[in-house]
Design a protein around this nucleic acid. Structure first.
Length: 955
RNA sequence: GGGCAGGUGGCGGAAUGGUAUACGCGAUGGACUCAAAAUCCAUUGAUGGCAACAUCAUGAGGGUUCGACUCCCUCUCUGCCCACCA
């Protein structure tokens, strides 16, 4: 093996000495901010997956540098937070000591992987010089009115006696001790991210981000447009709301005539009780019970919805009828208004609840199926001819089989169906139709199925039809039948199908609807359709009815988001103290106002240092560890100078990482978080790469903070990351690597044995950077062998032929590699480089220009070996600041081409010929080939000729 | 239940609608060696055939097209994320 250890050491030192990876932060001409999500220094040291991501990001950075950019590629550690703290607790170490050792270890490992980091600008979130400014960000947010203290229902582990973050609750159980997590209401700090919900959503469209991640964010933000409708209450006493009404949020005002009861969340019910509603004991009991439910109990109960009759009624504003009010915990307090109008006929949850509690179910929408494809697609602009019709499902008299019709003249598969004549009842029409189409004489009506409507183009009659179907389910009493009338007989075959066969029968949508209604027995239709049982709105399209109904009953338009405000406070130790002070005398003076008595620590007093304390473990109460340290929390009020108390909670780790990319270009700034000038030069980040697991949390928070900073006039852009790509996940033996599973790949071992270049090449050869893959030792051998051969080639070429131009075949390779790297498909770039090497070896002779071009293109992927060979060839230092090879468009096309000859689309020959050959000549040449002649006998029906590419004979 | 991504040799994976399986791993045979490792050479999708060659193959089934891994529809399996969101 080539002496990688010696080479890597040599160049690491030289690079550091000559500072080639430190851009001039003030004067750089073509700045390119190449960023990876900074690592969380965990217990295990650097993960092989991180090595892949980081070196993958570095390949891109080096590529950009060679394209003439001043690349800034900083590195730091996201070391604050619960994970680090938990690890410290587990090992009995103090988090500060743990941070110190893991920092050394991480930076050492990161130093070995050959990345062009700007080491001068590293930062750690637990460094007071950093978190001073995290606290400053908090205060800025406060000044903008984006911080609020309010009560929240938090995850609470009764065994550890501590509050847990959402990410610490795994399947309803505490991450650390495994006990069921309950809810507890506490006062907490929030960032009002929901103020930016709309901007966070609409800005997404303009970002060059992987579509998948944008979709995750859109879903997380979860915009839904609906209306608020007021239901006045009857029989309620004491509730101080003078109108005595409850407001519900709905996206389906068109179903209001089907709202047969109202359901409110236990939390809202409790609020009513708090303001004087004298609810029954039974109600109070239910509320108590459901408010103390554990996560697991709630998950388990999803299948059987619980609830209690509140003993009062509400008036449906559309029907004017009094309907019952229920309390149930399937209604969430945190979404909408905490109250819903229940429409059991058109909502599955409401339906389930109504069936269980024997509540009225009233259908108000019937489906309309519209054919939009094929022969029977509705013709635009033509009027609809309406017609009453029936569908019938017919069961065999003995077997569990049903009649299906396969039509002969048209490509249809249906159940029995037909029109209803004027004097007929639908039932009669159905029986008649069964006789006509199948010959069976004794169908017995078992039940009627929900009706449906269908719009389609009636081909034989040449008109658009709007058919109104009634659907029935019949069972034959016996097999008695008559001859099918001759005019019907030729039309279709009558088939007896099992349930399973019926599933794969290609029924039209409205037939399928009838079948599903029979099989599932569930009559919940949640789509749009035709209004029924809705008084004057009957017959309207439900979408159109929405607006009209809101208008009539006085509803209010309302947009709701699933996004919640960002809970910032943690009752923990290992984070930046929240820089707030509470003064009880000032609180009295401003009583009643939002956040009364709270004020920020004056900027000159920052940072609020996190003291080293020994009892850093989470306490047995809802207070943070710092709350038992008066020397920390006792302070004076900045306003009245009286005695006051500091906030003892620390902030969420995600706040640390929501702004770090602003600090990187200006880490040594002691006066400000970042200078405007540096930020203007380097931000927004040009390329950001990291794990998809951060798609909604970190990436959303970072965008939010950036928007807020823009609003404050501190930066002049709203979006921090111009281009974002996720990295894939590396597994080992098919599963995620973890210490407990014992399937860890230790980068140190492998770099020691094979060198950083080989590891880099192999990690990128697995798959495109944005896709994952499984680590296989066997595959690594390929990378090692490749570099060995490169080394041999470079060593053995003493005096390569000195030519000025690269060989003409090289241009295509340059293009391929350039394109592949631009798209982060390094695996393809490496494959092409291997192909070039094979060519070099096969050809025997290698000229200087080709070899140099090859090394230049390999340089981002394998920075050490290429630097060494570059020097060996007598070139000047460093290969990493040389220009990326260019290809000549004209050279991409060669004079000779391989013309593909097909017969009926099948390859029959290839002809080596000259570029620009005309069709006639190509045809002659092709037909002179034996293998073509054999298949083309006589004159071909058609000849397809694609210039310089292909000729296809259709015979 | 919803959303997203994806199914190509023994394995990782390539293929602007135009030569499917590039590149690598593994495997088999050979060279070198006392021997092994390393290295080098050859073969390697399946089936049939001595062979030239033929037929079949990109999860399954349809469709569009002269031509489909690629575009459209239906289904299926796997992975990830969200999940009582009114």
């Amino acid at each position: 093996m080539y002496p990688f250890a010696k080479i890597e050491k040599k160049w690491r030192e030289k690079w550091e000495e000559t500072r080639i990876y430190e851009p001039d932060l003030d004067k750089a001409k073509k700045p390119f901010y190449n960023l990876m999500m900074f690592p969380y220094p965990s217990a295990e040291g650097l993960h092989i997956g991180s090595v892949r991501t980081f070196s993958g990001v570095d390949v891109f950075g080096r590529f950009k540098r060679m394209q003439g950019y001043d690349v800034f590629e900083p590195i730091g550690l996201d070391g604050f937070g619960i994970h680090s703290e938990n690890f410290a607790i587990k090992t009995g170490k103090h988090p500060m000591d743990h941070a110190e050792t893991s920092e050394k270890n991480f930076y050492r490992q990161l130093g070995y992987i050959g990345n062009g980091f700007s080491w001068d600008e590293k930062l750690e979130t637990y460094d007071p010089n950093y978190y001073k400014w995290t606290q400053w960000v908090f205060i800025k947010m406060w000044e903008q009115g984006l911080v609020e203290r309010k009560k929240a229902n938090l995850n609470w582990c009764p065994s550890c006696k501590t509050v847990l973050a959402d990410e610490q609750v795994i399947n309803g159980k505490c991450e650390r001790c495994g006990s069921d997590v309950t809810k507890k209401e506490l006062e907490q700090w929030f960032f009002k991210i929901t103020d930016y919900a709309e901007k966070l959503l609409s800005n997404l469209d303009g970002l060059d981000w992987t579509e998948h991640i944008k979709i995750l964010q859109r879903n997380w933000i979860g915009k839904s447009e609906g209306s608020l409708l007021a239901f006045s209450l009857r029989g309620i006493s004491g509730q101080s709301d003078d109108k005595h009404s409850v407001s519900v949020f709905t996206t389906r005002p068109d179903t209001i005539f089907g709202a047969t009861f109202v359901v409110i969340s236990p939390e809202l019910a409790q609020k009513w009780i708090d303001i004087g509603w004298s609810a029954s004991e039974k109600v109070k009991q239910y509320i108590r019970k459901s408010l103390s439910k554990t996560e697991n109990e709630r998950i388990a109960e999803q299948k059987s919805k619980t609830g209690v009759d509140a003993g009062i009624t509400a008036v449906n504003p559309a029907t004017r009828k009094e309907i019952p009010v229920w309390i149930a915990d399937y209604v969430l307090s945190s979404y909408g208004t905490g109250a819903i109008m229940a429409v059991p006929a058109h909502d599955e949850r409401d339906h389930e609840f109504a069936v269980k509690n024997d509540l009225e179910i009233r259908t108000v929408i019937e489906p309309v199926f519209i054919d939009s494809k094929g022969q029977s697609a509705v013709r635009e602009g033509e009027p609809f001819i309406e017609r009453d019709a029936i569908m019938a499902i017919v069961k065999h008299w003995k077997d569990d089989k049903y009649i299906g019709l396969r039509w002969k003249k048209v490509d249809w598969e249906t159940i029995v169906t037909g029109g209803v004549e004027k004097e007929q009842t639908p039932e009669k029409a159905a029986i008649e139709e069964i006789r006509e189409e199948t010959g069976y004489l004794n169908p017995k009506l078992v039940k009627e199925l929900p009706p449906a409507h269908s719009k389609f183009f009636h081909n034989p009659k040449g008109v658009n039809r709007f058919a109104h179907f009634r659907s029935f389910y019949f069972e034959l009493e016996n097999g008695d039948k008559e001859e099918i009338p001759s005019e019907e007989k030729g039309n279709h075959d009558v088939l007896w199908l099992t349930k399973k066969e019926m599933e794969s029968f290609r029924l039209p949508e409205c037939h399928r609807f009838a079948w599903n209604a029979l099989v599932d027995g569930k009559n919940v239709y949640t789509g749009k359709g035709l209004m029924v049982n809705s008084e004057k709105f009957d017959g309207m399209d439900s979408e159109e009815a929405k607006g009209a109904i809101i208008k009539q009953i006085g509803g209010e338009k309302r947009t709701d988001y699933h996004l919640r405000d960002w809970l910032i406070s943690r009752q923990r130790y290992w984070g930046p103290p929240i820089p707030m002070i509470y003064c009880s005398s000032c609180a009295k003076a401003s009583a009643g106002r939002e956040n009364a008595g709270w004020q920020p620590v004056p900027e000159k007093d920052l940072p609020v240092l996190l003291p080293r304390i020994d009892d850093f473990r989470p306490k047995g109460s809802s207070e943070a560890p710092l709350a038992s340290h008066p020397e920390f929390y006792e302070t004076t009020c900045p306003e009245c100078k009286g005695p006051a108390r500091r906030e003892t909670d620390v902030s969420d780790t995600f706040l640390d990482s929501a702004w770090y990319f602003f600090r990187y270009p200006d880490t040594k700034n002691g006066k400000e978080a970042f200078s405007k000038k540096r930020v203007k030069k380097w931000l927004p980040v040009d390329m950001y790469i990291g794990g998809v697991e951060h798609a909604v949390l970190h990436l959303l928070y970072a965008r939010f903070i950036t928007m807020a900073l823009k609003n404050m006039g501190l930066v002049d852009f709203e979006e921090p990351f111009t281009r974002l790509r996720p990295n894939g996940l590396i597994t080992f033996r098919g599963s995620k690597m973890s210490k407990s599973k014992g399937n860890i790949i230790d980068p140190d071992d492998y770099i020691g044995k094979f060198g950083a270049d080989a590891i880099r090449i192999y990690l990128q050869f697995i798959s495109p950077l944005y896709e994952g893959g499984d680590w296989q030792d066997g595959g690594l051998i390929g990378a090692v062998r490749f570099l060995d051969r490169v080394w041999k080639l470079g060593e053995n070429v003493d005096e390569p032929e000195d030519v000025k131009e690269v060989s003409s075949w090289m241009h295509k390779s340059i293009k391929r590699i350039t394109d592949s790297i631009s798209e982060l498909r390094y695996n393809s770039a490496i494959a092409e480089l291997m192909t070039i090497l094979n060519k070099f070896e096969d050809g025997g002779e290698v000229n200087r220009k080709d070899l140099e071009t090859f090394l230049l293109m390999l340089a981002p992927l394998a920075p050490f070996i290429t630097e060494e060979l570059w020097e060996k060839l007598g070139n000047k230092y460093s290969i990493h600041v040389e220009a990326w090879p260019k290809y000549d468009e004209k050279k991409l096309v060669e004079d000779t081409i391989s013309l593909i000859v097909q017969v009926n689309g099948k390859l029959r020959a290839t002809i080596e010929t000259t570029r620009g050959i005309n069709e006639k000549r190509a045809e002659e040449l092709a037909l002179s080939e034996e293998s073509v002649k054999r298949y083309v006998t006589g004159k071909p029906k058609r000849v397809i000729f694609v210039k310089d590419k292909l000729i296809n004979f259709v015979v």
